[in-house]
Design a protein around this nucleic acid. Sequence first.
DNA 1: AGGAAACCCGAAGACCATTAGGGAAGTCAA
DNA 2: TTGACTTCCCTAATGGTCTTCGGGTTTCCT
Lengths: 214, 214
Amino acid sequence: MSNTGLDRRTRRRQETIEEILTAAIELMEADGVASLSLSAVARQLGMQPPSIYQYFPSKMAIYDALFQRGAEYFRNARLAANAAADTEDIRELDVIGVTAFSRWCMENPVYSQLLFWRTVPGFAPSPEAFAPAQAALEDLRQHLQTGVDQGHLRPEAATEEGLALYTSITAGLVSQQLANEPDASFEDGRFVRLLPTVLDMFYQYYAPPRGNKT
Amino acid sequence: MSNTGLDRRTRRRQETIEEILTAAIELMEADGVASLSLSAVARQLGMQPPSIYQYFPSKMAIYDALFQRGAEYFRNARLAANAAADTEDIRELDVIGVTAFSRWCMENPVYSQLLFWRTVPGFAPSPEAFAPAQAALEDLRQHLQTGVDQGHLRPEAATEEGLALYTSITAGLVSQQLANEPDASFEDGRFVRLLPTVLDMFYQYYAPPRGNKT
DNA sequence: AGGAAACCCGAAGACCATTAGGGAAGTCAA
DNA sequence: TTGACTTCCCTAATGGTCTTCGGGTTTCCT
């Protein structure tokens, strides 16, 4: 095996990259997303700050990697919850998916802030990092289209407008929750608790003319 | 007049405080809210950085002053728009008020970020700074109550829940707009354009039983 | 064993916020 | 007018940040 050594080296490399990212997340959870300090990360790994540059070309690259990873986790949270559900009813699936979404957001406020607020000065996600976020949006579009096909929603719900509305009202609740009551649990968050309500609003607003449910 | 001199001195002082705050806003608009640099502010005023400390005890105090000022402007934007309107109909007033609100947000993204996202590491508004924000919320509660009284809304709309829903869906649109299309104009922002729609949703959801409009 | 790549470090440059201490100028009372 | 007090602004210094550079050591492949 001529390449087991190389594999070993790249594996070790991957491990430290992992360590750096998780240390960064931990520090952000403690001190705020925008105050991430490479020196602090290095300290936590028992390194000197310049050594970090062996793994990431800049601080922004770390943010970028976290953005991408966050988007993947985030997308997966919804997909996994829906895959585990034993129903075909889009309305039920929607509640399950949105619940998983918001629970994930509250459990990962750092990722949420990175993904949804983009307030880190000078940081803009690279196309690669943005791809999974785009994919998650595509999932949602698909989902709304199914809702239309099943007769739960008017066709307008699956347009750009419907999508923008859907993301705005759900992300709006999470946004308010994270800004105003960041330490509340998912169960008794004053805002996040209203997610089923806001879904009702959406389905009511886009309700099909009458009596053509499947 | 033994105190004209003192007045003159305090007036000059007030002027530099003003200069500092507007310079801070300008720099934040250019470089991001969290990357405000006292040195840069001082440079813009032709001062040395330590001189700023004659006017504010710390960088956070500047954020705090801006938070308060932002909340006052913000509240006033809505009140002024509603005062200028020549209608008593709460539904119309609502569209006008929400339009004024979101227009203000888009024109003042720095204040908006400070007020609605609170992502500056280590910054939490002081009670004084928070007071006008609270007052604006109170205005809104009042407003919803009037909507109930006029028969446009069910009584549930004027509860804590209704208030949270109202702020979440409106702020949610603005939030998405600022995060995803920060440079769009107010007129063709993909999200902010949906404000009337989202108001419809709200009024439809809280529509009173039937036919008891005034 | 030899050579290359990967890894880590110390030093240094260019920023930053903040504190300490001093000097100049404006203001007021006697 | 003179002396005292306050305000204002400065320089110097401390300790923190990100990042680059250049050298040394370890690790691995051939």
